[in-house]
Amino acid sequence: MGTIESTAGSSEDKSTVIVVEHLYKKFGDNVVLDDFNLKVFTQENVVVLGKSGSGKSVLVKCIVGLMKPDSGRVYVLGEDIATLKEDELDLLRTKLGFLFQSNALYDSMTVRENLEFPVRRHWEGMEQAEIDSKITEALENVGLEDTIDMLPSELSGGMAKRIALARAMILKPEIIFYDEPTAGLDPVTAREINALILKMKRKYHTSSIIITHDMECVKHTADRVLLLLEGKCYMEGTYKDLEQSTDKKIKQFFELES
């Protein structure tokens, strides 16, 4: 492990965008992450698979610094996020997009304002026309142009998810974290979302961590799959490896499908 540690976090190491080392996190007696390790390389879609309550959301929240791990290190774009000052962290986060499992749309703002909010802050002095075109583009991507003046409370669950997705993507960030991007969506829309995730990678060279139970989504978007089980990385491989595996615990995920 020594060689990995020595290169992790050094900014010359362009090939990795996220390095997670020996991550521990527990809530009371509930050990959620137990020596978890992960690397994400540039322009790679990594899918984290795991049962409900296995700690997938906790993992991504630890990576972006919303939760403090009990021990372990997290490097994002070469920076150790535990040592960053508040404004340095703010700056780093402008390069990240995050889709919350709960969507987390600002409920006092309309859809337009939800999308405009991050744009206005990061490109100050941008022309209104340009902002509008970005918003329209983001809404077109998720197929919801006509919701622009609605409030989040007026959207259905799936619509809110797609708006949240549009918001996570609007700044064209270097890394996007998708926490269950297709949950609660019909198969047709889910397929469009999968295509969109791929498009983000191809067109804007984003790397991403995708959390999902949806095997269709895994099949289409994953370059590499990781199975999170009992706080550890149980297995790692491509979708094919997973599909062909004879391991009971891995097979379970496919059986659920049929």
Binding site: D90, R93, L96, Y106, F117, P118
Partner: peptide
């Protein structure tokens, strides 16, 4: 999680 959302978008 709206406060968290604000935080991860660098605000």
């Amino acid at each position: 999680e709206q406060i968290d959302a604000m935080e991860v978008s660098g605000i």
